[in-house]
């Protein structure tokens, strides 16, 4: 190959760089969409006001949620197969009445703990995280972080692999076998049903209304509004009672903010003890409250810049190598 001039080398490098640059940066215009989270909604749960509706069998928020979402609850087939080759399946259809844990038929429940002589009741459900690993890591994009903030599962796409539950710091989504898309593909070999969880009454939120639990709470312990406003209210309340906030930092930020008069470390400790006494302590559906729980994607996101920039560096290396070999061949 003949000698190439510095000018033609530069010209070709720029041309090559433009092509690879287009390939690599073709997505930049979509990254700007992140600005939209300004209008997101959130909730503030004041644990000084929630008494867990102790005079009732079932707390009002729980019973209201069950009534509101009844039409969305799973209706599985009869004779559900095991998850071959495993000899098990997750079938809650004969335990629909359970109200003291999360199940596909119970999307919120109230935990009661005693810390420093104070009785604390904690309504639990999906936290609707800012950067939800459940939605990010779903292999079929069956979960969505909606523009309004709630994280919702599409029951028509979900295959029931339960990865969302594994990557959620609280293990919130609950699986029901014998329902959903997997039945139409290869039900014996792949898929496990559909995952169910609180969607913050997304239909009501979109219609400009409050979630059912907020509306129903007899003690006015759950507040609903813009996320920014809820966060502000939570910190103001925490300051007033010299209390603590949970949900702002956890999992990289959520849109559910709990305020408690006692520390969440102590609440978490009590919940851990309660969980260990559950019929199956390892089973999800009884979330604890790990303080400052990290986001599942923190480590991967830490190397994201390297993954995206490495090809730019190798493009330069390729340019230099090509130039040298061409020069070399020309000199021979």
């Amino acid at each position: 190959m003949s000698n190439i001039s510095r000018r033609s080398f530069l010209k070709r490098t720029i041309a090559a760089g433009t092509v690879s640059g287009m390939i690599l940066s073709g997505t930049n215009k979509f990254a700007l969409a992140s600005q939209r989270n300004l209008d997101q909604v959130g909730t503030f749960i004041d644990l000084t006001k929630c008494d867990g509706c102790k005079e009732r069998d079932v707390p009002v928020c729980v019973s209201t949620c069950r009534t509101k979402n009844k039409s969305k609850f799973p209706q599985p087939i009869e004779n559900i197969q095991n998850y071959w080759p495993q000899k098990k399946k997750e079938d809650w259809s004969d335990k629909k009445d359970l109200t003291k844990r999360l199940t596909p038929y119970n999307w919120t429940f109230v935990q009661n703990v005693k810390v420093d002589g104070k009785e604390i009741s904690i309504p639990r459900r999906c936290m609707h995280c800012d950067n939800p690993p459940c939605a990010n890591l779903c292999p079929f994009s069956a979960q969505e972080k909606t523009p309004e903030g709630p994280v919702v599962i599409d029951p028509n796409v979900c295959f029931g692999g339960a990865k969302c539950r594994d990557v959620c710091p609280w293990g919130i989504p609950a699986r029901q076998a014998g329902v959903g898309l997997y039945l139409k593909v290869a039900p014996k070999f792949a898929g496990g049903g559909v995952m169910y969880k609180c969607d913050l009454c997304y239909d009501l939120v979109k219609a400009g209304q409050q979630p059912a639990c907020v509306e129903a709470c007899p003690n006015g312990a759950i507040f609903f509004g813009s996320k920014e406003e809820m966060l502000k209210m939570a910190y103001e309340r925490a300051e007033k009672i010299k209390g603590f906030v949970y949900g702002d930092k956890e999992n990289g930020g959520t849109s559910t903010f709990y305020v408690s008069p006692v520390s969440f470390e102590k609440i978490h400790e009590q919940l851990e003890k309660q969980k260990s006494k559950q019929p199956n302590p390892d089973a999800p559906g009884f979330p604890t409250m790990p303080v400052n729980a990290g986001n599942f994607l923190d480590t991967a996101n830490g190397v994201a810049a390297a993954v995206l920039l490495a090809p730019v560096a190798t493009a330069f290396a390729a340019g230099i190598s090509a130039y040298r070999t061409m020069k070399g061949e020309g000199d021979e």
């Binding site: 070709r12 490098t13 490495a310 090809p311 390729a318």
Partner: peptide, 19 residues
Amino acid sequence: ALVLLSAVSFHVVYHLIRK
């Protein structure tokens, strides 16, 4: 992915410049 992207980027740029 980092390795693949780097290799592909090298491949495209190297052969483009060398025509």
